[in-house]
């Protein structure tokens, strides 16, 4: 079962809408609450990242009986120093973004924390693709 969503860049008010929709659907599937929690937290963070750094992108969610697979793909600036980006508290977000309460440098670490597997494929100037796996059983 696959869902595809496009994320509108530069509109904070819409960020979170997709994770909220996915959450509703997963509840209807009757997935364990803990799985739904991880998916919605990870998705919200990734969605915000896409809006802040990459001017939007696309999200694909695939649910199998074993796991939820989520792919976030953007054509943004890419992540120059991935190791640094994975550190808690590190952020390249602008002051404007920070004033809105985002960009605390918890994004990627929090996404990793709420998934069972995370792979990041990024190229400066081309974009970033993050793949997450959240196991059901």
């Amino acid at each position: 079962m696959v869902f595809h969503y496009d994320v509108d860049g530069n509109d904070f008010t819409l960020a979170g809408e997709i994770s909220s929709k996915v959450k509703k659907r997963l509840k209807q599937l009757g997935l364990p609450p803990e799985v739904i929690r991880k998916v919605s937290i990870a998705m919200y963070e990734a969605e915000i990242n896409m809006v802040i750094h990459a001017n939007g992108g696309a999200i694909d969610v695939e649910v199998t009986p074993q796991a939820v697979h989520i792919t976030f793909a953007d054509q943004g600036p890419g992540i120059p120093d991935l190791e640094k980006a994975m550190q808690e508290g590190f952020s390249t977000a602008s002051n404007e973004v920070r004033e809105l309460g985002f960009g605390a440098g918890m994004g990627l670490p929090n996404i990793k924390k709420n998934s069972d597997n995370m792979t990041i494929d990024t190229k400066v100037g081309e974009g970033t693709t993050i793949k997450l796996v959240i196991n059901i059983a």
Binding site: K27, Q28, L29, G30, L31, P65, I136
Partner: peptide
């Protein structure tokens, strides 16, 4: 889980 569609995933 009243919103659940079916017991079987």
């Amino acid at each position: 889980p009243v919103m659940k569609l079916n017991e079987n995933l």
